[in-house]
Design a protein around this nucleic acid. Structure first.
Lengths: 142, 142
DNA sequence: CAACAGTTTAGAATTATTATAATGTAGATT
DNA sequence: AATCTACATTATAATAATTCTAAACTGTTG
């Protein structure tokens, strides 16, 4: 219950009105020990269950995008058909298990800092992301 | 003209029948000095222009996927709405210019070899890809 | 508590991709 | 070269993912 207040502040701080839907969404997304990865579909299910009623798909899309813009979520795109969001918005890399479609966080010690030697004139680097695709050792490629 | 023969062999070698459409597609994709990036839409236009007649969208999708499976193309996914294919199938990294939506190849000297310390039991690494997002220096984020 | 601006909603619209089934074609067989 | 067959292509329908719309609703401000 006190958590709610945090989320209300969090939303207000980002200029987002703390509506019932957004607060529920915050609880599903951020009220947990560990960060996690989800798809829009996952999320709709989770929120509907939590609220014990439907939430409009449009609202979920809107809110996810609002959260993304505010830096509360990060999108991880695997291919044109698989896109995840990550509640861990710190700069970090990922493994993607092609067998299970599971996205796995790397922590800092897993991959050395990436050193970019190229410089594009007038452009600054916004992010550097590594995606390591893995698959079962016995089967070839998949 | 002699190039056609190469493409016919290339297709045959991959177990793909050298049809008119596929050969045209090969010419558009592979008969050039430098490798390049494209979207399905780009490609449909390019092929239609080259053939001076329509090509079915389904054929382009089918063929692109066939080429991808055979390792003639690689998909580069930027976000859930922007997906490119790359005729450069060697292992390499990319810059993505968020202002122009342009994908830029890195060559080997641009980024040090990525050292992966994490090991996922029973899984082998299929690919390691770095995406560096850049944007204009004066505007914040975009 | 009235008023307004921002939000939610269901459903329509749009876009991207895949499936379908009829027609066409490459390559093998004769 | 005619025929056959499996694979390809095609237009279109179907599906899936996302965005738009316009009406109803709800925080917030005064």
């Amino acid at each position: 219950m006190t958590k709610n207040c945090n989320f209300i502040e969090k939303l207000r701080g980002a200029g987002l009105r703390p509506t019932k839907q957004r607060i529920n969404m915050c609880e599903v997304l951020f009220n947990r020990e560990k960060t996690f990865h989800f798809t829009i579909n996952d999320l709709v299910k989770m929120i509907s269950e939590k609220m014990n009623q439907k939430i409009s798909l449009a609202t979920v899309y809107n809110t996810v995008h609002a959260f993304e813009k505010k830096g509360y979520l990060k999108e991880i795109s695997i291919d044109s058909h698989k896109s995840y969001f990550d509640t861990n918005t710190s700069s970090h890399h990922h493994f993607f298990d092609e067998d299970t479609n599971e996205l796995i966080d790397c922590d800092e010690s897993d991959i050395d800092k990436i050193n970019i030697r190229k410089n594009i004139t007038g452009k600054k680097i916004n992010s550097v992301e590594v995606l390591v695709r893995v698959a079962s050792d016995n089967q070839n490629q998949k």
